[in-house]
């Protein structure tokens, strides 16, 4: 009986360890992918607008002529970058977000996206950013 128990414990440790590693891997893979996406958005913005990455993204966000999809991804990227300089610009567009509200990313600035960005810019936790920053 005790041997059976020890074997079960061994199996449990093995399965738990591998499961934990898989989750860790998925986290790291997702985080580096987020980093790549942020970099892409930044590079695209820096082609059109002046300044460093944050300034270019703010420029894109403020550009009413730009495509809403691009502006929404700029909001997302600003939140991920977490540079406090972007807070006033993001807050200006943020009108308030109710849980469960849907938004059309092609037609408007998504309030949920803005809400997330404001939270991150105000110093909210962003664990995935440690991997790629």
């Amino acid at each position: 009986m005790t041997r059976q128990k020890a074997r079960l414990k061994n199996l449990g440790f093995c399965v738990a360890g591998i499961g934990f590693l898989m989750l860790l891997f998925m986290f790291f893979a997702t985080a580096s992918w987020i980093g790549y996406e942020v970099k892409e958005v930044c590079e695209e913005a820096m082609l059109k607008y002046e300044g460093d990455a944050v300034e270019a993204l703010i420029g894109l966000l403020e550009d009413d002529a730009a495509d809403y999809r691009a502006r929404n991804s700029a909001v997302w990227a600003l939140g991920q970058l977490g540079d406090a300089r972007a807070l006033p610009a993001v807050k200006k567009h943020f009108k308030g977000y109710e849980k469960g509200a849907r938004c059309d990313r092609g037609e408007e600035l998504c309030q949920y996206e803005l809400y997330k960005a404001v939270k991150l810019l105000e110093g909210g936790p962003n664990i995935s950013a440690f991997v790629w920053r």
Partner: peptide, 30 residues
């Protein structure tokens, strides 16, 4: 950037592979 991200993910896969190998080895060893 895409290629670099892919390379990073591949290197994570290698690490995962080695770690899973050592865990299963330890399991069978016990």
């Amino acid at each position: 950037g895409g290629l670099e991200a892919l390379g990073t993910v591949f290197s994570y896969i290698v690490c995962l592979n080695c770690a899973v190998y050592s865990i299963t080895f330890k399991y069978f060893d016990r």
